[in-house]
């Protein structure tokens, strides 16, 4: 049975939870091989082996990442040609979707994004129209290229396989590509990645410049901090924290919305959360229409009280 190729793009120090999820899905669909971009250190290679990966493909040129998307897509397409996998799985970031998009054109292969489940025949379950429809879709031409949302499977325990074989793949550098000429690292928050987090506490215009109660509740729950566009536009928090149509789409176990009215563009990013709690001082806010538990009240009173109560019950 052909293997499923998983694209792992720059995990940095170690593999991410989402990479382990992709490997878990690939193992269940016939075994995983990895197309690897970035720094392949000993620990990562060992873990890939322990997760059943027999072959790691790497680009012959170290600077594929300096070209915007085109270099990575060319490498992925070359790896697919060299290894003929039954399908390719990628993460669900914008960049991963674009790598799939371009590789798809090179390989005459269909791309499906935002998968939440993949069947044995590579049919994909996903939601569309801002979560209002559940759709089953299938690639009917070429090698299926599927980008998979985080938190869709439980990571399988690692076994004890040996170090995988590393194969170098030649791919032509794109002649016409944009070059990344500067990179500023953003400060790490120490909190979980938004799209991977099981708990998200999000604040909106109602926090009025002060995210402290939102952050403290998130930390008490081990969660990530999100925001509405009103809050990111005001500069109270980084744009990368924005949830919604033009921000991140998240489906955590728990989403706590505080001081957010619940505009359609905000809902588009969070209404597939398992449980939604809303705190808003206006009883007519649309966010209450989708809340499992809603509090009409002042977030500056309600959130700190909840945080204190969680800490008390845990001690």
């Amino acid at each position: 049975m052909a293997t499923v190729l998983v694209l792992i793009d720059q995990p940095g120090e170690g593999l991410h939870k989402s990479h382990r999820e992709l490997l878990t899905i690939a193992s269940g669909l016939g075994g995983a091989a990895v197309a690897f971009l970035g720094d392949l250190n000993e620990a990562v290679a060992q873990e890939l082996g322990a997760r059943g990966v027999r072959t790691i493909y790497r680009p012959s040129s170290a600077d594929v990442g300096e070209f915007l998307v085109a270099g990575k897509a060319a490498f992925l397409a070359a790896t697919v040609r060299a290894s003929s996998p039954s399908a390719v799985l990628l993460g669900n970031s914008f960049e991963a979707k674009e790598i799939a998009a371009r590789a798809g054109v090179q390989l005459t292969s269909g791309v499906i994004t935002d998968a939440v489940a993949i069947g044995e025949d590579f049919s994909v379950t996903k939601s569309v129209l801002a979560g209002s429809y559940a759709v089953e879709a299938k690639v009917i031409t070429g090698t299926p290229l599927i980008t998979v949302k985080a938190n869709t499977v439980d990571v399988a325990p690692a076994g004890d396989g040996g170090a995988p074989e590393v194969v170098t793949v030649d791919s032509a550098m794109p002649a016409r590509a944009a070059r990344i000429t500067g990179r500023t690292a953003k400060a790490a928050s120490g909190r979980p990645e938004l799209t991977e987090a099981r708990v998200i506490v999000a604040g909106g215009r109602g926090v009025d410049g002060d995210f402290t109660p939102v952050e403290e509740l998130a930390d008490a729950l081990g969660g990530a901090v999100g925001a509405s566009r009103a809050a990111t536009d005001a500069g109270w928090i980084e744009h990368s924290a924005q949830i919604g149509q033009t921000g991140k789409t998240v489906s955590p176990q728990l989403y706590i919305s505080a001081g957010i009215s619940g505009a359609i563009q905000q809902k588009a990013g969070m209404q597939t959360a398992k449980v939604i709690i809303a705190v808003n001082k206006d009883a007519d806010s649309p966010v209450f229409e989708i809340a499992d538990f809603g509090v009409v009240g002042d977030l500056f009173k309600v959130l700190p009280q909840a945080t204190a109560e969680i800490i008390k019950r845990r001690s």
Partner: peptide, 27 residues
């Protein structure tokens, strides 16, 4: 098309849960 939509089902709208007014103990 290189992809095909096989089925499409409207998701039941989220139903509203319990909404309370803060009386000092909402947290």
């Amino acid at each position: 098309a290189w992809t095909r939509v096989l089925t499409a089902d409207p998701r039941p709208p989220r139903s509203q849960g319990t909404i309370i007014s803060d009386e000092g103990d909402a947290g």
